[in-house]
């Protein structure tokens, strides 16, 4: 990810800042300014709790450039308890222990390094909620 884009999306990736629609009240993540539910303006920031459950998951054995060294890793669609769904890696869990419906919570982790001299990208991953 390029430096400016990394910087622009830092609030979303570090602290799950989305939006709430002032018309219909739906929570939105990632932020998109027009509510996908009612098309009203949705520009009021709203920080999501980071709690949710696994909607689906996949363990990858082939990666895009820049992610090869982390293989294999598990990605998921996470349904947040406030409603929105997002795409993220799962962490601190064995691939064969992941289940659909598993409760998860957001943690901040290293996503990738852009080579030895490049930036280190941090962002959200999700881990199993400890009972």
């Amino acid at each position: 990810m390029r430096i400016a884009r990394n910087w622009r999306t830092r609030q979303q990736r570090y602290s799950l800042v989305g939006e709430v629609c002032t018309e219909c009240g739906n929570k939105i993540f990632p932020p998109r300014d027009v509510c996908p539910h009612c098309t009203g303006p949705a520009q009021l920031p709203y920080t999501l709790s980071g709690r949710g459950e696994v909607y689906s998951y996949s363990t990858m054995y082939s990666a895009p450039k820049g992610f090869e060294e982390y293989l294999p890793y598990t990605v998921a669609l996470v349904q947040l308890k406030e409603g929105p769904m997002l795409t993220a890696q799962l962490t601190d869990v064995d691939a064969d222990e992941v289940r659909i419906g598993m409760p998860v919570e957001m943690v901040t982790r290293k996503i990738r390094e852009d080579g030895e001299a490049g930036q280190i990208l941090y962002g959200y991953k999700f881990r199993s909620v400890l009972a």
Partner: peptide, 24 residues
């Protein structure tokens, strides 16, 4: 790019997420 690919997900994996949920 900003909210799917940036997480390390490949195009195959996106389809895999759909397939897993469908099977479930």
């Amino acid at each position: 790019q900003e909210y799917e690919v940036s997480q390390g997900v490949s195009f195959v994996a996106l389809n895999a997420l759909l397939m897993r949920r469908y099977m479930y």
